[in-house]
Every structure is written in structure tokens, then in C-alpha cells.
Design a protein around this nucleic acid. Structure first.
Lengths: 152, 152
DNA sequence: GTTGAAACCGGTTGTCT
DNA sequence: AGACAACCGGTTTCAAC
């Protein structure tokens, strides 16, 4: 399926604020309720919209530390990747994890309350994995930008 | 303000699905409508909930390429940081950008349609900045995990 | 904190152009 | 595909317990 300009406008509005009413969306793009309604349902059905969520405030929740870390796996062991993927998936501290090109294997984005909590995570959950060969951590000192909005 | 177990349950539900009705939330945590309503409004007012958004499907929108890149700035120039921050803020391709500890300055998360589009971005938008000294790009080959849900 | 009622508003559906 | 109108369900506010 192909998106037209109207669909993109709707997606743009919803990804910046999912609480906009259909009325508001309709008036902003100069349309009536019905087509807005039908288009949104279609965009959901077709999988353009993955889910509706609320974004929580990291600092308010005490998770003031953000850390990116590079992980290299022991590639001698064939089970390493599955093992590591499964382990990571069940760690709530890890928000993002992906396999990257370059001289290490994984890039992780991790949240923690403070340096001590991160150290706990590092020593007791990450470095204990048999699949892990090497880890290097990069502490985030300042967040310039952090959005979930994709360009349309 | 301090969160109790009930608040955390509510936040947990909302950050996984912001379309749950108050009725549904109430029944899942064995409470009546009124306190659920009041708690959510309070969590919004106090800033625990930043915003409600919808998450779009990157691939469906043609943005199948995810790239992380490390950027080193020219620290001889005092204006470099402000210049770079301002430039990045206005680039829709850049979803995340932060200052990190270690041997480079910034870590960026960038989306693009394909390698060619990324190269365009790289050559015409990123490397042309006077503040930029060095860039290295890491292409994401597989996304193991990618969530906006914070641990509670 | 619970229950119930009432007003309001947005989402939903059917029908028409 | 878009407009209009009627209906349904959730939210919001109130009261009383």
C-alpha cells in the first residue's frame, strides 16, 4: 500500500501526539471526520502504526543514567548469538540492542539509576554471560535529541 | 512526589499500550474508576508521563536503514558544540543524539531509506558542518530489541 | 478508597452525495 | 472518497458512603 500526502500528515500528527482527537486532526488537515477515521483505521490495519504508547520521564523515575555499550561476542562458540539475544531480551534495563557492522558486535542502550546501579548490571548481568568476550561502556553526559518520530 | 506500587502498575500498563481504557486498567489492578482516573491525571500533571505518541513502523515507511555514528568535533573552535547541537536538532533523519564519554564526542542514531540516502545525508548534511572533525558510521544489521518502555 | 448518576464528548456506523 | 447525522461507549465530575 502507498501513502499519500494526507496519510503522511495524519501519521505526523499522531506520532507527535497520539491524544489528538479525530476532530482536531480533521480540522488541521481540512477534512471531515469520516475520512480521518477510515484512514487511521487503515494505517493501523496495514501496520504503518505499530502501537500507541506513553513516554515516561526517565529522570522522574530515577533512571538518570544512560549508557551505550559496545559488546563483542565470543564467536568461537556457535551458540553465542542466540544465547546473548535471549539474555538481552529479558533485561528491562536494556532499551535498545542491535547487531552492528564494524569492529564490535552489538550496540546496547542501557538505563540505570546511577553509576553504582550500572556497575551492578555490568558485573552481575552482562559480563557473566558466557557469550560475552568484551564490553566497553560510554556514559551519556548530555542528551541533545531523543525522539521517536520518524521522518515522513 | 513518590510513586507507590499502584502508580507503577498504571505507568507500566500505559507505556505498553496507551489506548487501554480506564475501565480496563481499573479491572487489571483491581481498583475502581475514580482512583485510576485521578492517579493518571496526577502522573501527567507531575511530569512522570511526558507524552502520548504512536510508534510508526520504520520498514513500512521505507526507512529500512538504521545507522549509529560517532562524531568528533573540532574542539579548537569554541562555537562547535552550539553549532552542532543546533544543526542536529533540525535534522529529521537524526532520532537520537547525545554527548558521550570516551574517545569521541557524539553518538547519533540516524534513519535513512537506503545506503545511498544515508550517503547523501552523510556527505551533504553531516560532514559539511564546520564543527565536525571526524565521523564513523556503524550500520545496524539486525535489531534485537528496541523499546521505549522504562523499567519500573 | 467505592458506588452510582448525569453531562459531555469523542468514536463509530450507516446513509447520502 | 468525503459529508452528515444518529448512536454508543468512555471520560469526567459530582454526590454520598
Amino acid at each position: 500500500m502507498n501513502l499519500d500526502a494526507t496519510d503522511k500528515k495524519i501519521l505526523g500528527l499522531l506520532q507527535s501526539n497520539a491524544q489528538l482527537t479525530m476532530k482536531e486532526i480533521a480540522s488541521r488537515i481540512n477534512l471531515s471526520l469520516t475520512p480521518v477515521h477510515d484512514r487511521i483505521r487503515k494505517l493501523e490495519r496495514e501496520g504503518f502504526i505499530d502501537k500507541y504508547v506513553c513516554l515516561l520521564n526517565r529522570r522522574k523515575l530515577g533512571k538518570s543514567l544512560l549508557v551505550y555499550c559496545n559488546v563483542t561476542l565470543d564467536k568461537q562458540r556457535k551458540e553465542s548469538f542466540e544465547e546473548f539475544n535471549a539474555a538481552i531480551s529479558s533485561m528491562p534495563e536494556v532499551l535498545e540492542c542491535c547487531v552492528v557492522s564494524g569492529n564490535f558486535d552489538y550496540l546496547l542502550k542501557v538505563v540505570a539509576n546511577d553509576v553504582e546501579a550500572y556497575n551492578q548490571f555490568y558485573q552481575q548481568k552482562l559480563s557473566v554471560l558466557n557469550s560475552v568476550l568484551h564490553i566497553s561502556s560510554f556514559f551519556v553526559m548530555s542528551e541533545v535529541k531523543g525522539t521517536t518520530e520518524l521522518p515522513l
